[in-house]
Every structure is written in C-alpha cells, then in structure tokens.
Computed example of a mutant assay.
Amino acid sequence: MTDTGDVQRNIRLLIAYDGTDFSGWQRQGRRESGMEQNRTVQGTIEDALAKLHKKATIITGSGRTDAGVHAVGQVANFFTPLRGMEAQRFVPALNSLLPRDVRILEARETLGDFHARFDTRSRTYRYQLICGRPALPHELRYGLQLWRRPRLDLLNDYARLLHGEIDCSLFTPPQDPGLSRLRYIFGAFFFVQQDTLLFEIRANAFLWKMVRSIAGTLLHYEEKKLPPGEFKKILVSGVRKLAGPTLPPQGLFLWKIECHRDG
C-alpha cells in the first residue's frame, strides 16, 4: 500500500453492529492512556483505522445511535491517503482488526465531498417486540418481551398520524440538546413476522430517544384502547408528560440510511 501524501480518497462504509456492549455510536473522551472513557462504535472503528493507517483517522457516521442500540445499515465515511488499496479491500482489512460485535459489510470509494451525516436524506429505524410467548434467550438481546398481543389495527391507526412535519416535543426528554423539535416523518407502521411485532419509522432525523418513546407511547395508548382521534389531540399537544414509557434500547435497530446522493 502506498501513501499518496496530501491526496485523500473518500471511502464510504456500510456497517452493522450489536450495540449491547457499546455506549452508543459517538466517540467519547479519552483517558491519558489513550483509551476511550467508554466503549463506542465510532471509537472502536477509528482504533482499527489508526492501526491500518499508522495514524489517527476520523470516521463520520450518518446517525448517532444511543447506548445499547444496534444497526444493520449504518453509513459512514472516512478519508484515506492509501492509493494502492482497492476500496472493497477495506472490508476484510478492517474486519480483521475489529471485535466481533462490529462488522463492515461494504466499502467503496465515493465523491470527495460526500459527508455521511449531512448527505443523509432519511433514516429508518425498526423496533422488535416478542409477543405472546416466552422469548428465547438470544432474542432478549435484540428485542423486548411483550406478554400480550396488541391490536395491530389500532396501532397502525395511531402510526398513520405520524406523517409530515411534526413537533416531536411529546417524544423526547427535556434534556435533548436539539434547538428544534420539528422533524419530517415520511411514514410509520407496525407489522408482524411470526411472533415478532415490528415497528418501523422513517424520518429526516430523530431526537434523543425519540423512536423508543414513540413506540412506547403507541403501545401505551393501544392498551388503553384510546380512539385515534383522542390520540391525535395528545400528539398535537406536544406535552411530554402525556407520553407513554420509553422502551429500552435492546429492541431498536438503525435499519437503513438513504442519501441525497448515491455517493
């Protein structure tokens, strides 16, 4: 592999990870030893890139998943001076340096000004619930046990109201650092696969804990059999104390990223 000096190639990655043992995606501060204060996905990949490049290399992700949240479709990019290495070779090279709970699925050279975060048009998340039966041990790592079987029709009556530009104050804690609570939601729905209930939602961006709060709120009011018209009033109110419980992180997956440009 040859270092080209100032010439930088932009490499786009598709990444999957088991978020159970991570403190989220975003890199955190490092101790004097150089180790992260808490284990993160970004920091772990950057450690592998540093070994490959023999110097610090920053990677930018399309979404900042919280602690315990998984991904099968995270998109990220980094710049490399290596010209003698075909882009797809970063897949085995990085996977050989990464722990088993992070996998690089694809790597390709992209536009020089492609930015994984700013070029993202939409983010899709899924939440998994095991309904009406005891979950198998491995399922509890990636889903939430729900002992009852909720009404799918009523849940989707609520979910259909989540469309367009919405003030999402109802669905995020007051500590969320975002300056605006407005988000554009392209669509949301529930569906069933065998004994697994899945909630899928696609939006331009999400607030802190927003997806888990939405899923918990819809299930909360479905159990109360609240008419959809009454739920719409709660949604429009934006009053945080009217939200249902925020579901735990283990059932949540960053499922897909769509970009403005193919890159």
Rank of each mutant, 00 (worst) to 15 (best):
G84F: 13
A159G: 07
Y184I: 12
T124V: 06
L52G: 03
G24F: 15
I45A: 01
E86V: 12
T20H: 12
R89C: 04
H138C: 06
D18I: 00
L13P: 11
Q193M: 09
A205I: 00
E46A: 11
E46K: 08
R31V: 05
N204V: 10
S180Y: 09
F118G: 00
E109R: 06
L155F: 02
R39M: 10
R12Q: 12
G61F: 02
R83A: 13
T65G: 10
G73D: 13
I11F: 12
D3W: 04
D47P: 03
V236T: 15
S122K: 05
D6S: 08
L155N: 01
V7M: 05
Y17K: 07
R183G: 01
F79C: 11
S169A: 12
G29K: 07
H220Q: 04
A107Q: 13
G68D: 00
G68R: 01
G5P: 07
R12V: 06
L254F: 14
T110C: 13
T2D: 13
I104K: 03
A93R: 14
L182Y: 14
N10L: 01
V211G: 01
A243I: 08
Q28A: 01
P173T: 00
A135F: 01
S169R: 15
P134K: 10
F114Y: 12
E86T: 14
L136Q: 08
L49Q: 07
E46I: 13
I214T: 04
G164N: 01
S122T: 15
P81G: 08
K55I: 00
V69D: 11
G29R: 09
Y17I: 09
L105R: 15
L198F: 09
Q37E: 14
R183S: 03
C131D: 05
D66N: 01
Y127T: 02
H53W: 11
R160S: 05
R141T: 02
S169G: 13
T80R: 03
D176E: 04
Y221L: 06
K55D: 02
M210A: 05
D113C: 06
N204P: 09
T2Y: 15
S62P: 05
R64D: 05
P249G: 09
A67S: 15
V236I: 14
K55V: 00
D6Q: 06
Q28G: 01
S180W: 03
R151K: 14
G251T: 14
R117M: 07
R123H: 06
K209Q: 12
H115Q: 05
S33H: 06
I166C: 11
F206R: 06
F199A: 07
G34Y: 09
F190L: 01
S96Y: 10
G5Q: 04
V72I: 15
P228C: 04
P248G: 14
